[in-house]
């Protein structure tokens, strides 16, 4: 999929672990891992909003489009 989730980079910038982010966002570690590894097929606006709040960023900072 050409949409790439840049969760890793944002988490590194904020020095936040996946477990910590999962706690803050209210997602299971398994679901957040699906998002982080690029296996997710869709993201809910509510999830995106919660992640943006936790990582203090905008949706555009989390998503990238790599044309294949």
């Amino acid at each position: 999929m050409p949409i790439r989730v840049k969760l890793d980079e944002r988490m590194r910038e904020k020095g936040m672990s996946l477990t910590e982010l999962a706690d803050r966002v209210g997602l299971t570690l398994a679901n957040l891992s699906i998002l982080k590894t690029g296996k997710a097929k869709a993201v809910r606006f509510s999830t995106l909003e919660a992640i943006c709040k936790a990582l203090e960023c905008k949706p555009g900072d989390l998503l990238d489009f790599d044309e294949e």
Partner: peptide, 8 residues
């Protein structure tokens, strides 16, 4: 169903 399961 697969899409639903992979919706975060």
């Amino acid at each position: 169903r697969e899409e639903q399961e992979l919706t975060v």
